[in-house]
């Protein structure tokens, strides 16, 4: 199907993109296109309004790079999921990012989709949210000539509303932290997750320190479960599963059936078992 008419723009710098977007009405940014183009088709089919302008970020230099220094990782917002999977530095120092990227969609989509698109798409089940919160990532936006930094946790508390153009994601090296990611999907094949559990913790003298316990129930953005974190603080390793499950307030999640509650309990156990290893 031919998309509804729009004017295509391909700025070469972030400033040009920002200025252009500010001047145009009914404009949308295009990153990898794996969400936007299908959305445009869907809107057309339903006779709904579509953007008049598409501003492609693909030709902007500097957004496609992965830079690792001694204590920090910077990932450009237009870095594709496949680039993240193939990067040896990420595999070694931040393997959770590779694990999350490998689970997303299909080979072709991973070649096209960008981490920036996954962060800014505002789909509640988008998978990078949990691990970026766990990694205490900082999201860097360019808005009207200024750089704005937002912690990933705060970004998702604010329903993933972007401040300008996401340029990069910065992650400080996580010394001695174990991070595990567990996802539940309906099928063993390609599927979006029904729910995910992401845990980051340090284990010292068989006790838990500095825990981040993040749950995504599929219908709201990933968030830390502070009840669970409080219950697990300084907990002994052998108590983790029971304390975690007993401290969950299921009413704060969209788990309207016993099956879904049992699914969350099971995946909490799996995640904790991974953490113990």
């Amino acid at each position: 199907m031919l998309l509804n008419p729009f004017t295509y723009h391909s700025p070469k710098t972030i400033e040009e993109a920002s200025n252009l977007f500010g001047q145009l009405s009914r404009a949308r940014f295009l990153a990898g296109g794996t969400f936007l183009i299908n959305n445009l088709k869907s809107l057309k089919r339903r006779n709904l309004a579509t953007p008049d302008h598409i501003v492609s970020l693909k030709k902007i230099s500097g957004l496609h790079e992965i830079k690792l220094s001694s204590n920090k990782l910077d990932i450009g917002s237009m870095t594709t999921l496949d680039q993240i999977i193939q990067n040896k530095d990420i595999e070694q120092k931040y393997p959770i990012l590779k694990q999350v990227a490998e689970n997303i969609a299909t080979t072709q989509i991973r070649n096209m989709a960008t981490i920036g698109g996954n962060v800014c798409c505002r789909y509640t089940w988008a998978e990078f949210a949990s691990c970026l919160i766990a990694l205490e990532a900082t999201l860097c936006f360019h808005e009207k000539g200024e750089e704005i930094k937002v912690l990933a946790e705060d970004f998702y508390k604010n329903s993933a509303k972007s401040k300008g153009i996401l340029t990069k994601i910065s992650i400080n090296l996580q010394e001695n932290a174990n991070i595990v990611y567990q996802r539940a999907s309906k099928t063993s094949g390609v599927d979006v997750p029904m729910l995910t559990v992401c845990i980051k913790a340090q284990i010292e003298n068989k006790k838990i320190k500095n825990i981040f316990f993040i749950i995504n129930d599929g219908s709201s953005f990933s968030k830390r479960d502070l009840n669970v974190e409080s219950a697990l603080k300084d907990a002994a390793i052998q108590e983790l599963e029971e304390k975690a499950i007993n401290s969950i307030d299921f009413s704060s999640y969209a788990l309207d059936t016993d099956y879904k509650k049992d699914l969350l309990k099971a995946h909490i156990k799996y995640a904790i078992q991974k953490l113990k290893k």
């Binding site: 295509y8 296109g33 794996t34 598409i54 492609s56 693909k58 496949d82 070649n111 096209m112």
Partner: peptide, 13 residues
């Protein structure tokens, strides 16, 4: 050299 889905790729891109 990488597989892409042409139905969601803009030609100008």
């Amino acid at each position: 050299g990488k597989s892409f889905l042409s139905c969601i790729t803009l030609a100008k891109d």
